[in-house]
C-alpha cells in the first residue's frame, strides 16, 4: 500500500483498536485471546484496506473478530476440549463474595450468543439488521436474543446495579 494508505490504516488502529479489543473481550472473556483475535483481524483488514469503505469498516472488522473467535473455539473443540461454537458462556464468573457484581462480569456469565447480541445492540449501538449480519442470523432472532440477553443480565445483577444501568435510583 502507499504510505498515505498505511498512515490512514494506522490512524484507524489508533482510533478503534481499543474499542475492538474490548468488544473481543466481551465475546470471549479473556484479554489475551481478545488481543490475539483483534491483532489477527487487523492484519486481515490491512490486506483488504485499499478497497474497504469507511462506512462499513467497523462492521467488517467486528465480523472478522467474531469469525476468528468462533474458528478458534471450533479448533479447540477438535482438540477434544469442551468448548462450543460460540464464545464461552462462563469464562469469568463474578466473585460471589464481592460486594459489587460488575456489569462486565455479569455479562460474561450469560450465554455467548445472548451476550453478543446485547453487546452489539446496546454497547456498539448497532441496528437489528447490522447485528443480524454479524451474527449470521435473522432480524427476528436478534430481537429475541437481545430480549433474552437483557433478561439474563437482569437476573445476575443486584437491584442497585440494575438501577445504575436503568439510570434511576433504586
Amino acid at each position: 500500500m502507499t504510505p498515505v494508505r498505511d498512515a490512514e490504516f494506522c490512524e484507524y488502529v489508533a482510533a478503534r483498536g481499543e474499542r475492538l479489543r474490548r468488544f473481543a473481550y466481551l465475546c470471549c472473556g479473556d484479554w489475551h485471546r481478545a488481543e490475539d483475535a483483534v491483532q489477527t483481524a487487523l492484519v486481515r483488514l490491512y490486506r483488504a484496506w485499499p478497497r474497504v469503505r469507511p462506512a462499513t469498516v467497523d462492521a467488517y472488522t467486528r465480523r472478522i473478530v467474531v469469525n476468528i473467535l468462533i474458528s478458534e473455539s471450533r479448533r479447540l473443540r477438535f482438540q477434544r476440549e469442551r468448548v462450543t461454537d460460540e464464545p464461552p458462556e462462563t469464562t469469568a464468573r463474578p466473585d460471589a463474595t464481592a460486594e459489587r457484581v460488575t456489569l462486565v462480569a455479569a455479562l460474561l456469565c450469560i450465554p455467548g450468543r445472548l451476550r453478543a447480541a446485547v453487546v452489539l445492540r446496546y454497547w456498539e449501538d448497532l441496528s437489528v439488521e447490522q447485528t443480524a449480519r454479524i451474527l449470521g442470523c435473522s432480524s427476528g432472532a436478534v430481537k429475541n436474543l437481545s430480549m433474552r440477553g437483557l433478561a439474563a443480565l437482569r437476573e445476575r445483577l443486584t437491584d442497585t446495579e440494575f438501577a445504575r444501568i436503568e439510570g434511576v435510583q433504586p
Binding site: E11, V13, A14, E18, L42, Y46
Partner: peptide, 13 residues
C-alpha cells in the same frame, strides 16, 4: 479494568 495493550498500527502494517 482494561489492561495495557501491545496493539500498534505500525506493527500490524
Amino acid at each position: 479494568l482494561t489492561p495495557p495493550s501491545d496493539l500498534s498500527g505500525t506493527a500490524i502494517v
